[in-house]
């Protein structure tokens, strides 16, 4: 049992290795974009996983507000953190791709803008969790934040789409042929495994911290320590 997680982590490392092999060696060079296109195999799945993390955080926070079980909150916290890690990957790799392809590091393109705003929201969530202190009030604050982020993301999407009004480069992904698509999905599932690992370990850490606090309180009441 104690070796389960290390073993799974090793498997995750292997998964990342496989994903690297697929993205950099296995897949043929894309004709129009060349090597930079290989960023897609990590960039796009990471974006999906970021939104998955945000979704899990939203759901768990809503659940926490309804049933008030601290574990739900711990899960929301962990999924926000995990999502943020993948969101950072998206933000780092995006400009790497945009510079050679668009000629600029950044473009006020709807997809990009939405992504960055959602990332800002969850970064704010993380800041609240990290520096707001412990305690129920802060936990509830963070939960409300995550719940409000849900509809907010919808509005951001609509507003940004109308504001930018430029064609998103999603076509570049949909235009691609089967090998590229298949590799993309495979990479997604490999990364999903790593996502799950990270979520699991972060959740366990938060949950254990909760238990430690509860046990401490009981000890203090009994006059120990």
């Amino acid at each position: 049992m104690r070796l389960l997680f290390p073993a799974a982590t090793a498997l995750g490392a292997v998964a990342i290795g496989v994903a690297h092999y697929l993205a950099f060696v296995h897949v043929p060079m894309e004709s129009t974009m060349g090597a930079v296109q290989r960023i897609f195999y990590f960039h796009v799945p990471s974006a999906w996983l970021f939104y998955l993390g945000a979704l899990l955080c939203f759901g768990a926070s809503l659940g926490y507000l309804i049933n008030r079980k601290a574990r739900w909150d711990a899960f929301a916290h962990a999924s926000a953190e995990t999502g943020l890690v993948f969101g950072l990957i998206v933000v780092v790799t995006g400009p790497l791709w945009a510079r050679p392809v668009w000629g600029v590091w950044w473009n006020w393109e709807p997809r990009l803008t939405t992504m960055s705003l959602v990332l800002l929201m969850f970064a704010a969530y993380w800041v609240v969790r990290a520096f707001g202190g412990p305690g129920q009030g802060v936990r509830r604050f963070a939960a409300v934040l995550a719940v409000f982020a849900g509809p907010s993301i919808y509005f951001v999407r609509v507003a940004v789409n109308r504001w930018g009004g430029v064609h998103p480069p999603a076509e570049t992904a949909s235009r691609s042929d089967d090998v590229i698509k298949l590799t993309m999905y495979t990479c997604f599932f490999l990364l999903l495994f790593v996502f799950g690992l990270l979520l699991r370990i972060r959740y366990r850490a938060h949950r254990d911290a909760l238990t430690v606090r509860a046990v401490r309180r009981r000890l203090a009441r009994l006059g120990g320590i």
């Binding site: 060349g34 050679p100 668009w102 000629g103 600029v104 473009n107 393109e109 930018g164 430029v166 480069p169």
Partner: peptide, 17 residues
């Protein structure tokens, strides 16, 4: 928004590597 967004109208396959 074309005048405000740089490279707005640029389609991806017009780039040069």
């Amino acid at each position: 928004a074309g005048d405000e967004v740089p490279n707005a109208g640029e389609v991806v396959d017009t780039f040069e590597t």
